[in-house]
Design a protein around this nucleic acid. Structure first.
Lengths: 118, 118
DNA sequence: GCTTGACCTAGAGCTCACTCCAGCAAGTAG
DNA sequence: CTACTTGCTGGAGTGAGCTCTAGGTCAAGC
């Protein structure tokens, strides 16, 4: 699969895919004889997971750290697990923060409705 | 209250306070005879609310829109309410997204634990 | 009356995460 | 063969949201 197809299938732009490779978020793609990137379909699973980590608010640097360990493979499971545990905690507290923001916002909405009725 | 004290009390830096004033997120501060900003303690309540909106993920531009309406006062309650309702919805879906990320992360952690046991 | 420190402005610089461009090479369709 | 499309690289540009610098003013303490 070439980069154009991967862009379509992954929903990322060609620019972003090359950028992710440059910063080592994606493994260096194999190349065709003429030098074009040639991806295996399995990359899609990895991209999907990376997108999840991003959506969870994990900074790119931490995802790169995870990606590096993942490419190293065996023996890195412990550190990968710790990275994910830490991120899980961050997500949980972010959810708590958002819930508390929601309370403030909902309260303010009620205040505004009262003002409108006056 | 001068800007240094406000910075301490609000937790924002002096730079940020001046920047917020410049972009109209904070009302233009009164000035002492010598031109220094002189804040009323009530500004702290506003800053607190702005920080909540920021923490909720509201873009600065939208907060500025809210701030502008707030300064205009009467007659703007309807639009302010609509802005907050929209933000509330964004927060709710962000919370849902984070919960689903959390599931993916927690699952991956279990996978890694299995790998470590092998 | 001089030093110190808090404050002022305009504008430059920074980080993050992309996004795009110029200039070129290679594959493809008519 | 020509034209078009897709791809390549290094590096510049973007936008959000600050953060800091340079060069100056002003008030208070010794």
């Amino acid at each position: 699969m070439r980069i154009g197809e991967l862009a379509q299938r992954s929903g990322l732009s060609i620019y972003t895919l090359r950028y992710y490779e440059k910063i080592c978020l994606l493994p260096k793609a194999d190349r065709s004889l003429s030098g074009r990137r040639d991806y295996d379909a399995s990359i899609l699973k990895w991209i999907e997971f990376v997108e999840r980590l991003k959506a969870s608010g994990m900074p790119i640097k931490d995802i790169i750290r995870y990606a590096t360990l993942w490419r190293q493979g065996d023996g890195t499971e412990g550190e990968r697990r710790r990275l994910l545990l830490a991120q899980g905690e961050r997500v949980r507290s972010r959810i708590a923060e958002l819930n508390s923001c929601l309370n403030v916002i909902d309260e303010k909405i009620l205040d505004l409705i009262k003002l409108e009725k006056e």
